[in-house]
């Protein structure tokens, strides 16, 4: 039984890491109704910039601030160059624009830095927490716990930001109806600028944690695909949904790997989340916490 819990908790904790990536998607989806395909590339750019700065011998926090600055500028530029000319265009147009953006970001990131894998050390060790393994015999990684803690703080503050603040309300208003938001005097440009900047910040946090865990390399961009089942499960426009979705996906894929895997020859961790997402689409297409499409008849 202790083994079961160990797998479960390990899964939940790795799920939190997915949630972090999914959060970035949720933010932009909420404010502009666009699935931002470039989120994975943003994670990659953030991690690469941060690790690059660190390798130049720059202090941790200074590097963090500089990278954050880069991400914010990227967000503002995206709004100015890509989104502003596309106001009131169909969502598919905006989606295509983000695909284009993905390639630009990936290209620029590798041009400025390089395409070698880097190691990123955040000073958090990936070792079992001694007091848990002593008391229960389970191995729970310090790194995972820390990552989960950071994610929890991030999510709580974002959820509060969306529901309680003036800007947060404006963000949700913009997501619901661009034109009406304009009509009440909400400047779309500012809002999109803010939301892309916040998404950049989330990408930075995700990039640092994933980078520290798997190394900073091009495969970070594929995180975007990992976040997809999380989003489908949790709902595209829900911050708590991204978390719950992440937890479910994380736990499910680890448990499936351990308990169902041996029956089919293993290796199901990679695709099991997508099957889960597919089943979910049949039952509840808006996700667990997603906003129901309101139709009046």
């Amino acid at each position: 039984m202790s083994f079961f819990f160990e797998v479960l908790i390990g899964g939940l904790l790795s799920g939190v890491m997915y949630s972090l990536v999914a959060l970035g998607f949720v933010l932009i989806y909420k404010a502009s109704g666009v699935f931002n395909f470039a989120q994975g590339a943003m994670v990659f750019l953030a991690a690469l910039t941060f690790v690059g700065l660190r390798e130049m011998g720059i202090d941790f926090w200074i590097a963090f601030v500089i990278t954050l600055g880069v991400m914010v500028v990227l967000g503002l530029l995206t709004e100015r160059i890509v989104l502003r000319p596309l106001v009131n265009q169909p969502q598919i147009t905006l989606f295509m624009a983000t695909i284009g953006l993905t390639f630009v970001i990936e290209g620029v990131a590798q041009l400025v830095w390089d395409s070698q894998p880097h190691n990123l050390d955040l000073g958090i060790q990936d070792v079992p927490l001694p007091w848990i393994s002593d008391s229960t015999g389970m191995n729970i990684s310090t790194f995972d716990i820390t990552a989960a803690g950071i994610a929890a703080v991030l999510v709580t503050s974002l959820a509060l930001f969306f529901s309680r603040t003036r800007i947060g309300r404006a963000l949700r208003a913009v997501a619901d109806d661009h034109q009406a938001a304009l009509a009440v005097g909400i400047p779309l440009q500012h809002i999109w600028g803010i939301v892309w900047a916040v998404a950049g910040f989330v990408a930075l946090v995700a990039g640092m944690l994933w980078g520290a865990r798997n190394g900073v390399q091009f495969s970070l961009t594929f995180l975007a695909l990992k976040a997809l089942p999380v989003l489908i499960l949790g709902g595209f426009e829900s911050v708590p949904g991204a978390i719950v979705g992440g937890l479910i996906i994380g736990a499910a894929e680890k448990l499936a790997e351990v308990y169902i895997g041996p029956m089919v020859g293993g290796g199901i961790e990679g695709w099991f989340p997508y099957v889960l997402a597919l089943l979910f689409l049949l039952v509840r297409p808006e996700g667990l916490f997603g906003e129901k499409h309101i139709d009046r008849v």
């Binding site: 309300r169 949700r172 208003a173 997501a175 619901d176 109806d177 034109q179 009406a180 938001a181 009509a183 906003e291 309101i294």
Partner: peptide, 11 residues
């Protein structure tokens, strides 16, 4: 106040 009301439905 726009034609067709345009409330923010989910708010």
């Amino acid at each position: 106040v726009m034609e067709g009301r345009h409330c923010f439905q989910h708010l």
